[in-house]
């Protein structure tokens, strides 16, 4: 059995924990997030007959009052950078966070997740912006933790990249 450490990154209230909750059956209380800043879950996926366990480190959202501890990223095999698609600032905040943690995440594959895709009426990320991000090398996925749309696919995409030679 192969196991990989995955980190969930993003600013506050973008839906990281909701995405994890949608994806896995939780074990620890979410109070851990507010105490030590991280909650750990796991999910085993089957990729073409290859079992892979994703150990998900759901890190607290970064905001002016608390910063994501870079030490939590050590040993990460991949990450999901999560932003709220209805709040453009969260996307910029996520990208700034990624930039700040560049040293810890260098060479680590990641997926940029634009969450809350079910709120189409208030969607704030222009297609041009997404295309620009893709040109920069980002893999972008639209998800909805509320409906489940795109959640499995985002994780699976990352998992496949982790197993790619």
């Amino acid at each position: 059995m192969i196991k990989k450490k995955i980190c969930m990154l993003g600013t506050s209230a973008v839906g990281k924990t909701s995405l994890v909750r949608r994806y896995v059956q939780g074990f620890f209380s979410e109070q851990y997030l507010t105490t030590i800043g991280v909650k750990i879950d796991k999910k085993t996926v089957d990729l073409d007959g290859q079992a892979l366990t994703l150990v998900l480190w759901d890190l607290n959202g970064e905001d002016p009052f608390q910063r994501v501890a870079a030490s939590y990223l050590r040993g990460a095999a991949g990450f999901l950078l999560v932003a709220d698609g209805t709040r453009r600032l969260t996307l910029e905040g996520a990208l700034r966070l990624h930039e700040r943690l560049h040293d810890a995440l260098e060479g680590v594959p990641g997926v940029l997740v634009l969450n809350k895709a079910d709120l189409t009426a208030s969607w704030a990320i222009e297609p041009a912006r997404i295309e620009a991000l893709q040109r920069e090398g980002w893999t972008v996925r639209r998800t909805s933790a509320k409906t489940g749309m795109g959640v499995e696919e985002a994780f699976e995409h990352l998992a496949r990249r982790l197993l790619a030679p």
Binding site: K5, F27, F28, Y32, I40, D41, K42, T53, V55, W57
Partner: peptide, 8 residues
């Protein structure tokens, strides 16, 4: 679960 306990 050893995965989760180890992680925590």
């Amino acid at each position: 679960d050893a995965d989760l306990v180890s992680g925590m």
